[in-house]
């Protein structure tokens, strides 16, 4: 169906320009190297394929987090959201985790979701940290508003940073936002934000080549899996 571009121009919200997030690598507990890089709009369909199997996993609120992430990424792909970005983690080219967010305005960021597709490796912690790094160090924002949708998220963000509770409503609905301020970020940075730059050309090529994703069953097994009785 052809897109009515005239109407589109009315529907598409204005975008605040965002500087690029420089990719970095992190050595994980199992020795594998994860590349964290910024997704471009054209990556979205591939990313959605990895998010899809998570829609049906109730464990640890994967269903709600991935359903919302799915919608948000689609909204970005179809130009329905203001200044959204997505960072992703890849190991051997495989997509292992996704974080996204957007800019409320030049100074305030709105954190959306963190989805770890491989578990037990602190991938979520690393990606969330990269997201905060992007808002603070690369976009020069003053604060980021955050809510947690699962107990694990609450433990890893609200308690580990620790974030401060505000009375500002969060875009995801639900409760009041917690806030990462520049001061909190700078205090937490040396223990939570790690990574090596620049990324070698070889690793970058592998990551950019084609986002690889495991098949649905493997993804489900990784997140909720239990080898049979």
């Amino acid at each position: 169906m052809p897109v009515d571009m005239e109407l589109e121009m009315v529907l598409r919200p204005p975008q605040i320009p965002m500087p690029p997030y420089p990719p970095k690598t992190i050595t994980l507990a199992n020795g594998k190297v994860m590349v964290i890089r910024q997704a471009v709009r054209e990556d979205v369909p591939a990313i959605l394929k990895s998010v899809h199997p998570c829609l049906f996993i109730e464990r640890d609120y994967y269903d709600i987090v991935s359903a919302r992430l799915y919608g948000e990424l689609l909204a970005w792909y179809r130009y329905r959201v203001k200044s959204e970005y997505c960072l992703m983690g890849q190991v051997d080219g495989y997509l292992v985790g996704i974080v996204n967010g957007r800019l409320e305005n030049e100074k305030v960021g709105m954190s959306y979701h963190t989805l770890a597709i491989d578990r037990g490796l602190r991938i979520g912690s690393h990606l969330f940290a990269a997201k905060m790094e992007y808002h603070m160090d690369y976009m020069g924002q003053d604060e980021v508003l955050i809510v947690a949708e699962s107990p694990i998220g609450f433990r890893r963000w609200m308690i580990e940073y620790p974030l401060e509770l505000t009375h500002i409503p969060h875009e995801l609905g639900g409760g009041d936002s917690y806030r990462l301020t520049r001061e909190i970020y700078l205090k937490a940075k040396q223990r939570l934000v790690v990574g090596d730059r620049p990324v070698s050309q070889a690793l970058m090529d592998e990551a950019m080549l084609d986002i690889k994703f495991a098949d649905d069953d493997t993804i489900r097994e990784r997140i909720a899996g239990l080898k049979g009785r």
């Binding site: 507990a29 199992n30 020795g31 594998k32 037990g120």
Partner: peptide, 9 residues
């Protein structure tokens, strides 16, 4: 836990 750890990591 069925994951070998890496000293570096």
């Amino acid at each position: 836990v069925e994951m070998a750890l890496d000293r570096g990591g």
